[in-house]
Simulated assay, not measured.
Amino acid sequence: MRKSVLIWGAAAVATLGMAGFGGWMISLPSGTRAANAPLVPQAEADAMLASLRPTKRERPLVAVIGINDATETTDYLVPTGILRRADVADVMMLATRPGPVQLYPALKVEPDATITEFDANHPDGADYVPAMSRDDDPAALAWLRSQAEKGAKIIGICAGAKVVGASGLLDGRRATTHWYYLSEMLRRSPTIEYVADRRMVSDGNVATTTGITASMPMMLTLIEAIAGRIKAEAAARDLGLERWDARHASAAFKLTRPFATTVLANQVALWNRDELGIRVEPRMDEVSLALVADVWSRTYRSSVTIFSTSTDVVETRSGIRVMPDQVRVNWPEGRRASTFPDRKPADALDQALEAIAGRYGHPTTNVVAMQLEYPR
């Protein structure tokens, strides 16, 4: 989910609330009803694996595309980190033009190549393309279509489904996306058949997922399709996940009155803002880094600054090159955000959410989890 969700609190909630539209706030549901995620039939799970199996190369080539100034942090870094550490494919991070990729809501990284350079070196295209970014960039949309024509399987992570939809690759297909963008996607691409209660959906050579944290089960499913169940189980243990199936309770994620009032209250508390520092170090876990930086940037009370002891690019465990925002030896006590280096990424995410609850209260944690579409 891109920065527009963060802006929503200031632009939409604050505007409506302060302009006297109290009725609008009251009209929102008071909460989300308890919902159980229905089981996914085994035949459906098997069909998804079959649709994702590689058909072009014995060792697949994965191209993760981003727009230089409009790419979601976890959508870009989490698939790359998970696939590289599983070592089941060659993974390249691409950008639509030269230069670094500024991620939202935090982090800046150096891509491996531009889409033009990739096409020159790999004229037959990639095997898989995880897509995430703004859905109005002509270069990105054209490149996705060209990769699909060359036989690549396209995976739209979170709001990336909107991008895939805008490229025309979801017309007449079954799909899902982040709850916040669902109506927009269906309005722009009315022939899409929305599938509720699924964290990921596959139709032909295109797969889509729900919110931000769905990138983890989606990548584990891809690993299983490429290299088998045992390899996927090992990758899941490395992440700290017990399961990665498509179960999801869609009714649990929607715009509610508690969400809106918490966002509004946090947004108007201008005197009470935190700039939190995360120190990047060589060989650190990039999946935990992405998840922790993301959640602390979604509280409407805090922002994240990435710092290091020098201006040098810092290379993570899986070779992602992070560019620090500031050069600092340290960060003030009480204003550092831990990436929990002794924990696995899924545990680090839970620990960060608990830390947010301790600092700002459980309503703010619920706001963050709702933005992540994270089934806690």
Rank of each mutant, 00 (worst) to 15 (best):
R328G: 05
R336G: 11
Y360M: 03
T311W: 11
R283Q: 12
S338I: 02
Q267F: 15
T364R: 05
A265N: 02
G334K: 11
K344A: 10
R317W: 01
T339V: 13
P282D: 13
T305P: 03
M323V: 15
T339P: 00
V314H: 02
A293Q: 11
T311P: 11
D347Q: 14
L353W: 04
V313C: 08
V329C: 05
S338E: 08
L264T: 06
L349S: 05
S310W: 04
V313M: 06
D347Y: 02
Q326E: 14
E281H: 01
S310C: 08
V268Y: 08
L264W: 08
D285L: 00
L276W: 03
Y300T: 06
R298K: 15
W331Y: 14
I278Y: 01
R335D: 14
V268C: 03
E281N: 05
V329F: 09
T305L: 14
A357L: 04
A265V: 01
R359P: 10
I320Y: 02
R317I: 01
H362I: 11
S302R: 11
S338N: 10
T309Y: 01
E286H: 07
R283K: 14
R336A: 15
S310H: 04
R336W: 01
D347K: 08
N330I: 09
A265P: 00
G358E: 13
A337C: 07
D294K: 05
V322G: 00
A352D: 04
D325R: 13
R321E: 12
V322D: 00
K344L: 13
A348T: 04
N272Y: 07
R279G: 09
A357E: 12
R336S: 14
T299V: 07
D350A: 12
P345D: 10
A337T: 05
D342C: 00
Q351S: 14
T365P: 03
A348W: 00
T316D: 02
R336Y: 03
R298W: 09
S318T: 15
H362K: 10
Q267A: 14
D350L: 09
Q351F: 05
V313S: 09
S338R: 00
L353F: 07
Q267T: 15
T365G: 05
V287H: 07
D294T: 15
F340L: 04
R317P: 00
S310P: 13
P345T: 07
I320R: 01
R273F: 08
M323H: 05
I306S: 02
L270Q: 13
A357G: 08
I278D: 01
A265Y: 01
D274G: 13
Q351N: 12
Q351M: 12
P324R: 08
G361H: 07
A337V: 07
S288A: 15
E354K: 13
R279E: 13
N266T: 09
M284I: 07
S310Y: 03
V329Y: 06
T316I: 03
R298H: 09
W296R: 09
E333G: 09
Y300F: 15
R279W: 01
S308Y: 09
R343S: 05
G319T: 11
Y360I: 04
V304M: 07
L270C: 10
A357W: 03
T311Q: 14
M284G: 03
S302M: 10
V295D: 04
T364L: 03
R298Y: 09
S338A: 08
W331V: 08
T299L: 04
V295S: 03
V304Q: 02
S318G: 11
V304I: 15
D350Q: 10
N272A: 12
D342E: 10
V263G: 04
D312N: 11
L291R: 04
G361Q: 05
